[in-house]
Design a protein around this nucleic acid. Structure first.
Length: 417
RNA sequence: GUGGCCAUAGUUCAGUUGGUUAGAACGCCAGGUUGUGGCCCUGGAGGUCGUGGGUUCAAAUCCCACUGGUCACCCCA
């Protein structure tokens, strides 16, 4: 027990991995139903890609990235989120030239060097989707519908969808000035943290958890009330569409996301089944980002969802799938030549797609039976000299203990799962 | 990065006001049928009590440091 996994990283062990596979299957299926295609990008990228897209002043870039110099002195970073890489790939491979709208999804590990706590790891996993090339509010809503459909198919019901509009390059700067002016006026009532935020990222003061801040900023102007006509229209349309497809939501004028690139729609799905880190998924529109990363001006929307947090909710609500899959057949061999025969036969059956297991430890019959039981094998066939000579054996059904004589020649025909 | 709590078998934990061979349950291994599991019974293996220092005749137990875990802040998935 000398080596240990790095702080904030976890092994996903047999017994746990089944739940992951279940989630992954549902994600792939729903993504396909919504016509999103999978994209896989490298786990690391040039550091500048993230600092430029996420924003120099964000916490993610400032203090949470796994950044290091490789052997050629290039600064590389383990990806802290998925959107930047996807857009880089979109631009680099000219995906926009092949079709005006690109709908892709991803699933994989992300890295952030934070202090771990409930629902937060240094290596965590997300799935997410991006729709690049359209400014239609249909897609803003499709993102939430997509995420909610995945949750619904997984049996998750404890969640809340919050939406907001963070404006665009036309209306946000004006609003920001207004907000800063107002916050400066009441600065003395703000917490030290918020006073710092006032300089760095004033919008963030709005979603402070500090009770004093909440009270002090109660009547501060909100972005959603100072949107330009284009943004108002978009936001209104998003709400209409959400209503039209029957998705429940709450407008949260204080919802601000931690990444700078969002424009117009921002949304977050939270769950009370989680601890203090209660965001299950989040996302929004990023109409300026592609251009900022060196592509043609191209609008886009996306979301990202945390798999560990999803699993936590699943666990709490008792929706974790049971892991009961065992081999269909377990050979119990009495001696060496029977073992060799069983091994050969197992190989043949496995090639036919039948899950077969046998004993590799030279154990007693009793121990082999115990092993078959522990592994949840459906059937057991005991082979010894007698069986090999006669070509017949007993097929034992481990569910009810019943035995039936079968021919060793065609075992597969006798198995029914 | 800051703070609270925690650290004893593979796992979950117990361990009396410091007192000599550190326990339980589950799990694991073996036996209880000359070739048959689940339940039950019997036995067995398995712990430098996180690490290092200190106090003491004596430390798993008290003190300090470190490491690790966990929860919270910050922020976010």
């Amino acid at each position: 027990m000398k080596f240990k996994s790095i702080k904030g990283t976890k092994d996903i062990l047999p017994g746990e991995v089944e739940a992951w596979q279940h989630v992954e299957r549902v994600v792939h299926r729903v993504m396909r139903d919504f016509n999103y295609r999978e994209i896989r990008t490298p786990v690391f990228e040039t550091t500048a890609l993230f600092s430029r897209s996420i924003g120099e002043l964000t916490d993610i870039v400032n203090k949470e990235m796994y950044t290091f110099l490789d052997r050629s002195e290039e600064s590389v970073t383990l990806k802290p989120e998925g959107t930047a890489s996807v857009l880089r790939a979109y631009i680099q491979n000219n995906l926009g030239e092949q079709s005006p709208l690109v709908k892709v999804y991803y699933m994989g590990p992300m890295f952030r060097q934070e202090r771990p706590q409930a629902g937060r790891l240094r290596q965590f996993h997300q799935f997410g989707a991006e729709a690049i090339g359209s400014q239609s509010p249909l897609l803003d809503v499709e993102m939430t519908a997509l995420a909610l459909e995945i949750y619904s198919q997984l049996g998750i019901k404890q969640f809340e969808l919050k939406i907001n509009s963070v404006g665009c390059e036309k209306c946000r700067p004006q609003y920001k000035e207004l907000l800063v002016a107002e916050l400066t006026r009441i600065q003395s009532k703000l917490s030290p943290e918020s006073q710092a935020r006032l300089k760095q990222n004033p919008l963030r003061v709005l979603d402070s958890k500090d009770e004093g801040d909440k009270a002090a900023t109660k009547n501060v102007p909100l972005m959603k009330d100072h949107l330009c006509t284009e943004c108002v229209e978009h936001f209104t349309k998003v709400q209409q569409l959400l209503n039209a497809i029957g998705i429940k939501y709450a407008i949260d004028g204080r919802l601000v996301r931690g990444l700078d690139y969002y424009t117009k729609t921002a949304y977050e799905i939270t769950s009370t089944a989680l601890g203090s880190q209660d965001a299950l998924a989040g996302g929004g529109r990023y109409d300026l980002l592609v251009e900022k990363l060196g592509g043609k001006p191209t609008p886009g929307v996306g979301f990202a969802a945390g798999i560990e947090r999803l699993l936590m909710v699943l666990e709490k609500s008792g929706n974790t799938p049971k892991d009961e899959a065992g081999p269909v057949l377990f050979f119990v061999a009495l001696d060496n030549s029977s073992l060799t025969w069983a091994f050969a036969e197992a190989t043949k059956l496995r090639a036919k797609g039948i899950a077969v297991e046998l004993d590799y430890l030279g154990r007693s019959v009793k121990a082999q039976m115990r092993e078959a039981n522990r592994q949840n094998a459906r059937y057991v066939v005991v082979v010894g000299e007698t069986e090999l000579k006669s070509g017949k054996a007993k097929l034992k059904d481990m569910r009810n203990g019943g035995e039936q004589e079968i021919s060793l020649e065609r075992i597969d025909g006798s198995l029914q799962s």
